[in-house]
Amino acid sequence: MSAYDRYNVDIPYKDMPPSMFTVVGVSDDGDEIVRPSTSYWHDVWQRFRHDRLAMIGLIILGIMVAACILIPEFSDKTYDGMDFFNSRQPPSREHLCGTDAMGRDLFIRIMYGARISLAVGFVAAAINLFVGVIYGGISGYIGGRTDMVMMRIVDILTALPSLLYVLLIMLILGSTVQSVIIALCFTSWIGTARVVRSEILRLKHSEYIMAAKLAGAKLPTLLFRHLVPNAMGPIIVSTAFLVPSAIFSEAFLSFLGIGIQVPMASWGTLANEGQAWMSEMPWLLIFPVAAICITMLSLNFIGDGLRDALDPRLKH
């Protein structure tokens, strides 16, 4: 049977065997994929890699993380080790960032502070991501009345500045790292939840969701296997900006004196202490403040870079 049969038209050379024909002008090579295929994530990485500021941010953050993990382990100084013979020293080779009124080495205190601040930032962002994805996912997917009630609850929670909730929670739970994280997470997952919800609303009528539903997928499968991975871009961007905002909030709380308590020290606590000695020992203020600003800048650069890399349409 020749290839022309299905057209049911009278073609003069219908009965000629295909072997008598030669293909002209088309080669099989054209369909061959010469370059390695690039996945979406590979593409994202390529775009991110060429964002100079974002890469600088990533490198600085990497150094910061490595330093705050390694340096306190291999240093003979501790965050509460006092040395009254060497108190109030300006920065020197022995004490890189100087010492405070009790002779504690500021550099090592900043390193311990980095552990607290960075841990608070990343843990809070992770919890926010988790809660936000589940809340926003359920709200967006189920829709209707459930969605309305869930979104009203969120609106009510955001009507007041989160600082008030944070203060109340901190006073109920006391000033520990855990309660700082709980307090910070109380309202900040809402941003992620809203992003996830709007993404789910956009995606839930896609054909592949219909197909998954027909195949009998249940809500958790639909949500975590099909919907969330496809909404990953915006979710990552909103989480990336949660890290600096959590670090900022923690520093702010400690600066007010209701966060991490001395002798433990986060960057906010150190900046607060430094403020009191501003005239006599300006280095006590300058170094913690520099640490906060540099970290915030790098994290914001990374966030901007991720946003541009994940959604190039947004870039200007």
Partner: peptide, 18 residues
Amino acid sequence: ATVGISVPTFILAVLLLL
């Protein structure tokens, strides 16, 4: 704008004081 968004208000206040 990037610096302005990155520097926390309480730090700015203290730096202005200084």
